[in-house]
Design a protein around this nucleic acid. Structure first.
Lengths: 152, 152
DNA sequence: ACCACATAGTGAAGTACCTTCACTACATGT
DNA sequence: ACATGTAGTGAAGGTACTTCACTATGTGGT
């Protein structure tokens, strides 16, 4: 069995997942970039735009635009940061929280539908390879990539 | 072991692969969309823009723009289609072919580095889960997605 | 208290990718 | 010959990104 079979399968699955995620996003009138921001906000709680920019690995200027859109759609609010008058604090609204919750639910649901029926031993073996590959990949990126030390 | 572990691992790996692919693309002064077009052209041989649009699942208008860019960078040529004067035939140049070849080589190389050392039985088990998941996923998309019948 | 310097956010301008709609040139069946 | 369909592109517009310049604010040193 050639190693490419594994990589090809991963890429194919990756493409399917992306398609499925985008379907979900468009059902809710959102886009990938904005959903990432909401997800991050759900994970980290109220954040400055600076923090969001670092977490999402995009420029602060870009976050301004994304937040503009999400304020417009009512998913987040922009409030003055208590204690630093330069910064604004971005916070999920009720609608934003609801979306994040539903996103998590949908994620869980997909995982169950895809892997719920897989026997435990096969699941464990699969996840083990996944984890090892993840580690190995990180190692490979470190060799050649060598960005500034802002690792994720 | 919760099924989410598998999905999360896949998503993480997917993100890493995307990053790595984009690094490769930028090293060559290309973008994801253009590389997809080149890849498709390498797989299918000289094609009309219409064909490319269908294969890439984007609008014909968009293909016009992508081909414009690739003609500019010398990766493809636009020639009149023999036998249909409405259509143009997009063909890889020598440079375009070279890029596609290197892309395949790089792909192969990555697969070897990631999975080359994995024992055969674990590889087989991994790929089996991958394939089953792919099938199951296609089934799920058919249930809810239900686009017009242009299945891939 | 003051000043130099760093930091948070945004306006302006530009690129790439993508869309829809309208239009031209060509193909094809009757 | 004529109607109808198909290939490609112009025009206009949206989102996601970038860099650069600029304002407002925080902070450490003297």
């Amino acid at each position: 069995m050639p190693p490419t079979r594994a990589l090809d399968g991963l890429l194919a699955l990756s493409a399917l997942m992306t398609t499925d995620i985008q379907r979900f996003e468009r059902e809710h009138g959102l886009t990938t970039a904005r959903v990432h921001l909401l997800w991050q906000l759900g994970a980290a709680g109220p954040s400055t735009q600076r923090d969001l920019a670092e977490a999402l690995r995009v420029t602060p200027r870009n976050v301004t635009g994304l937040v503009d859109g999400l304020v417009g759609s009512g998913h987040v609010t922009r409030e003055p940061h208590p204690g630093d008058r330069r910064a604004t604090q971005v916070t999920l609204t009720a609608a934003g929280s609801r979306f994040v919750t539903e996103l998590q639910r949908s994620h869980q649901d997909l995982a169950d539908r895809l892997f719920g029926d897989l026997p435990e031993d096969r699941l464990v073996a699969f996840v083990a390879v996944l984890d090892e590959t993840l580690e190995r990949f990180a190692g490979l990126m470190g060799e050649t990539g060598e960005q500034e030390g802002t690792a994720s």
